[in-house]
């Protein structure tokens, strides 16, 4: 674990000022420097991610011109479209003009539909974010509860159920689970809608009804992963000296489990959360297609089919930002939990 602060947060909340007076004068400057370094790394990651995406799509011959020209394509028309889109320019120049646009807040327009990419993102991003958020919430809430049951009731029926379910949950692919859920809970029993999505802003009831199955499909592996990690971590923590010491002081029940065991077991679990967020963001691509959800996942799938570069690029950029920000938050959390990892 690096000890530099994540770029998204000012170092102040990270570092409760234990003894401000004793703080060496150079420390604040050093902190600012690490912060700047971190911000640079963040930006570099974004540039790298989008450039690699750009380069990979271009690597494949064939281009949006054929998609745009449609079935009436003539070589002249194709050349015309290519020139119009700047596809005849060198790769770096193309990337450069795209990046310059982004810096000025201009994501361009979809080559396929002519809509503004920023507008598309504004429509799709909330859907995907709410799906990822629900799945993460599910993974944390249910995963933590299950992990506790699995550890405390280890080797007893409840614990075995948790362990078994977690092993299964990790192995099941999300699209398959999605199809099974739809078959059972939308077709056999018409309890939930088979496809589609309702925005959170349009009413909580409808939102929940539509979100339940995709959230389960997307989040199940996360639940299993969190439960398994937490159970393992707790079982290890239970044997720790400080648990015995706490019990010797008369601490028991919730205080013992939450303040002593869970907090310590939380450290590895938080690391898992970071990886989980990456997986969830990637998983939306599959789950949104299975449930016909109008989010970033279906957007990028269509965009790839249509070679809609500006859309692909924007989605890659946004997903990279989500992942980076989420991981920065996880790192803050990590530092919050464990005082041994601090800004130095």
């Amino acid at each position: 674990m690096s000890t530099a602060p994540p770029v998204t947060a000012a170092p102040v909340p990270l570092q409760p000022q234990r003894d401000g007076a004793a703080r060496p004068p150079g420390r604040r400057a050093a902190a600012a420097r690490t912060l700047a370094l971190r911000a640079g790394a963040f930006l570099a990651t974004l540039v790298l991610a989008t450039f690699v995406a750009f380069w990979l799509i271009k690597l494949v011959p064939g281009d949006p011109a054929t998609a745009i020209a449609g079935e009436n394509a003539t070589p002249e028309r194709l050349a015309e479209i290519r020139a119009q889109l700047g596809l005849d320019k060198p790769l770096l120049a193309q990337y450069g003009s795209w990046a310059a646009g982004v810096v000025h807040g201009d994501f361009g327009t979809s080559l396929y539909s002519g809509q503004s990419v920023a507008g598309l993102l504004a429509q799709r991003l909330p859907v995907t974010l709410s799906l990822v958020f629900c799945s993460l919430l599910l993974a944390v809430v249910v995963g933590v509860a299950a992990g506790i049951v699995g550890a405390v009731r280890n080797k007893r029926p409840e614990g075995r159920v948790v362990t078994g379910a977690a092993t299964l949950g990790i192995a099941v692919p999300n699209f398959w689970l999605g199809l099974v859920l739809v078959t059972v809970f939308a077709i056999w029993n018409p309890w939930f809608p088979a496809t589609g999505f309702s925005r959170a802003g349009d009413g909580a009831g409808e939102f929940l009804r539509f979100a339940v199955l995709p959230t389960l499909a997307l989040g199940a592996a996360g639940v299993a992963e969190v439960a398994r990690q937490l159970r393992g971590a707790l079982l290890e923590v239970f044997t720790a000296d400080y648990i015995r010491m706490a019990r010797a002081k008369g601490i028991s029940g919730t205080a013992l489990l939450v303040r002593h065991a869970l907090r310590n077991a939380g450290v590895p679990v938080v690391t898992v959360l970071g990886l989980l967020i990456n997986r969830l963001v990637g998983g939306t691509v599959v789950v949104e297609v299975v449930f016909a959800i109008p989010g970033m996942g279906t957007l990028v799938v269509d965009a790839v089919k249509q070679r809609d570069y500006p859309v692909i690029q924007a989605v890659v950029l946004v997903m990279a930002v989500i992942v980076l920000v989420a991981n920065a938050i996880v790192e803050i959390l990590y530092r919050r939990i464990d005082p041994r990892i601090r800004l130095s």
Binding site: A145, V149, E158, L208, V212, T239, G253, T254, L256, L257
Partner: peptide
Amino acid sequence: TLYRTTASAVVRRALLGLLGVALLVTAA
């Protein structure tokens, strides 16, 4: 090192939590 009894309140709460999520889903 934890007695089952020690943490049973929390476990009960965790089991209740799991049940609650299931209920929420059913309510939805």
